[in-house]
């Protein structure tokens, strides 16, 4: 006889979901590292909070609620939020952090209003969208997991192709621009990759906490290494471990949301890194 929690963890559908979420965790760590190096760790936050409205919008526009449709809506909303952020920065004198706060608040408010409002207005089949708030890995099917893994693989391949250009811009944007590199477009590419991974993390981790998946593993990885390539790999690895642990643990009890457990796993990795990595290294001298 195996313990019930162990059989819940090793159930086939749990393992399939964990596989998809693992791929997302890896890619989110890699992509999040680039945003962190560019000193824009909150790009993911702005994108994440807009996804909920996009999920509702995707459902409203198509009447379908399969995962790819909803995530496509979320991706459009995330890009729109980042676009608004760029416009606010360019045409007003609002500070960067204030502009981010505005976009986060407004888009999240809209999302909450939609996912909680639609069922009450009697829209058939609109219930349950709020599970994208905190994430619910158990709802991920084999086909969903394949989609998430595909998106993750694509993001990692784009990074592998353009890591030289992205690193150049992150380290010294003025030098890159003087050399003729399209800095704005490379920044947009990084923002779009972050948005894609935030959206891919949505089913398992949820809109509120998915930012942590693109921020905490990179910050932890940075403690261990002084090279970009190693940082990307390590952040990917940390993200993968956090995603898998969170998904498996949440499977042991019916009521456990996946998102908080993934974030707590990532935070544990960060805390252990802080303790284990010698202070001399952390101070960079």
């Amino acid at each position: 006889m195996t313990a019930p929690w162990l059989s819940a963890m090793t159930a086939p559908n749990t393992l399939v979901a964990a596989g998809g979420v693992a791929a997302v965790g890896f890619a989110a760590g890699v992509v999040g590292s680039l945003a962190l190096l560019r000193k824009r760790p909150l790009v993911g936050d702005a994108a994440a909070h807009a996804t909920l409205a996009g999920v509702a919008g995707g459902f409203l526009a198509t009447g379908r609620r399969d995962l790819p449709t909803l995530l496509a809506g979320a991706f459009v909303a995330a890009l729109a939020a980042l676009g608004v952020l760029v416009l606010i920065r360019r045409f007003t004198r609002t500070r960067d952090d204030a502009a981010t706060g505005i976009v986060i608040g407004v888009s999240f408010g809209l999302g909450i209003a939609l996912v909680s409002g639609l069922p009450r207005w009697g829209l058939a089949g609109s219930g349950g969208l709020e599970q994208f708030l905190l994430g619910h890995a158990a709802a991920i099917t084999g086909r969903d997991a394949a989609v998430l893994a595909g998106v993750s693989l694509a993001a990692v391949l784009v990074v592998a192709a353009a890591v030289k250009e992205i690193t150049l811009v992150a380290f010294d944007a003025a030098f890159a621009a003087a050399g003729g590199w399209p800095v704005d477009w490379i920044d947009a590419l990084v923002a779009a990759l972050v948005a894609a991974m935030v959206v891919a993390g949505l089913p398992a981790v949820g809109a509120v906490l998915v930012t942590a998946l693109v921020v905490i593993p990179p910050v932890a990885a940075r403690l261990w290494t002084d090279r970009v390539a190693a940082m990307l790999m390590l952040a990917g690895l940390f993200g993968l471990v956090a995603a898998v642990v969170g998904t498996l643990v949440s499977a042991t009890r019916p009521g456990l949301a996946t998102g908080p457990l993934v974030v707590l796993s990532a935070a544990t990795i960060f805390a252990v890194s802080l303790v284990v990595v010698p202070r001399r290294r952390q101070e960079g001298s």
């Binding site: 190096l37 992150a170 380290f171 050399g179 002084d226 970009v228 960079g284």
Partner: peptide, 16 residues
């Protein structure tokens, strides 16, 4: 060739 001001970059960046 261009040499920007030294203070414009983050010298804690993970490159050698």
């Amino acid at each position: 060739g261009y040499v920007p001001q030294r203070e414009t970059v983050d010298w804690d960046f993970p490159v050698n």
